[in-house]
Write a protein that binds this DNA or RNA. Structure first.
Lengths: 252, 252
DNA sequence: CGGGTATTTGACGACTGTCAACGCCAGTGG
DNA sequence: CCACTGGCGTTGACAGTCGTCAAATACCCG
């Protein structure tokens, strides 16, 4: 991991420097570079690395930056007063997270690094400016928001109406589909990386770790999946999709 | 109701005409007018009226228009395969609903008129154009989306982690707060309009009508509210807010 | 006054949570 | 090299919230 960090530094040598991470104080290694976001090529951005199990940002903290995820998985979450967490979404490479609109000053949710993570950061103020000056960026942000909203609606439907088995099947089917787009599924289409703990999967689906485990066992016994260390082997994708009522593409 | 429709027609006489509503076929009275949305003063828009218990648009239907709600309450929902509905949000006057981003062609959710409703409609294509040409509109749409997202996150937290009592308390506290901003709360701050059925409240909170009723009875027995016909009397707002863990303003 | 919808209540059952214990595995330090 | 330790996964017993089914009551509108 440390090696990879070094590599990033070296690759962008001419334009990089090390500074304190404004988001987390804990000795987070940070690389700042003149970089790009999509089409806005003149904005100053920064690359950050966050180790697994550390937070990229915390709910309620001042929302200084938004991020494009370069590598790794993030868990977006909200915390309940009793300390339990509700997972909102898993962010995968390419996803854009942490943007807040003009006037909002703090994050509405937290972002936890499931794996080691590399992100590209943008100052919120720059993004707000870009909306004014670059219509393409404005369009992209509304598009990103719309898609995220649609998935939130699916999640709400699941949390409110679906059984535990359906919710987990939906979550797995969704991850499978998104990982496929990222070419992260094995060639035979059966093995997908799964760096989450069962506890995190439970947070996403509104279940306790114990019950999550039971449901996974049932899915295993029914021949839908095989759980492996850090991966899941999908034996019967169609049934998984049908059980979870996952609509690929249209209404995720 | 019909009278009010007439009034709308007359007020905008010079620029109005009657056409079939493209969204619903059922004899919906529609007034089309040269009108305004916020600052985009040159766009052609239309006013529609939808009777209580009818849908403004249905999930999966072609998303021709987006709407600003002028009067009445809307229930945004997603339908589960077993026919049950999950309420996503209650839209109140001033809310903007039904917008989909470029590339999306159909609504991700449905919109049901809780009461008789008046909306102002905008063609999606016009809105997309406006994002390109009018930065203020782009900003507004991202702001609206961000706020809606934050409330979705709160809803997900509730559906995933909170008890039935907490979810209903949160929903009532949220409505109370939003209605207060619209000056719809009685002067003594106790009575708020409540045109929803208990079944709809259950759809919003992920509960069955029966259990919704039981929870409401408990809240009544605990001296938090008094249910009346078409209204709710809030006896102890602070306790309602605390029970539902409602954060006014910041993280709704 | 009558029919249909919404609310209310009871009995019962199932899904999911809670508590507790154990096993497995990886990383760590001696 | 091996024992230790801590996190994660697994399983059982039990409890409680919430859903289901059913029926009675209340209320609205014509």
């Amino acid at each position: 991991m440390q090696a990879q960090t070094q590599k990033l530094t070296e690759v962008r040598e001419p334009h990089t420097r090390c500074v304190e991470c404004p988001i987390r104080q804990k000795a987070l290694f940070q690389v700042v570079a003149e970089d790009y976001i999509h089409k806005a090529e003149t904005r100053r951005t920064a690359q950050y690395r966050v180790g697994a199990r550390h937070t990229l940002y915390q709910e309620g903290a001042p929302a200084l930056m938004a991020f494009t995820l370069y590598s790794g998985w993030l868990l977006l979450y909200r915390t309940h007063s009793d300390g339990s967490r509700q997972g909102l979404r898993v962010a995968l490479p390419g996803d854009f997270v942490g943007y807040v609109s003009t006037g909002d000053s703090s994050y509405s949710h937290g972002a936890l690094a499931i794996t080691d993570v590399t992100v590209c950061g943008f100052r919120q103020g720059d993004l707000h400016d870009m909306i004014d000056t670059e219509p393409d960026i404005a369009r992209q942000i509304t598009t990103i928001h719309s898609r995220y909203l649609a998935t939130c609606e699916s999640t709400m439907l699941g949390l409110g109406r679906k059984s535990a088995e359906q919710r987990i099947a939906h979550t797995l089917a969704d991850l499978y589909h998104r990982l496929q787009l990222l070419s992260e599924i094995s060639e035979d289409g059966r093995v997908m990386p799964f760096p989450m703990t069962q506890e995190m999967l439970g947070e996403l689906t509104g279940l306790t770790p114990v019950h999550t485990n039971r449901v996974l066992r049932r899915l295993r016994e029914d021949g839908l999946i095989i759980g492996q260390r850090q991966k899941i082997e999908v034996l019967d994708l169609p049934r998984l999709v049908e059980l979870g009522e996952y609509r690929v593409g249209r209404l995720p």
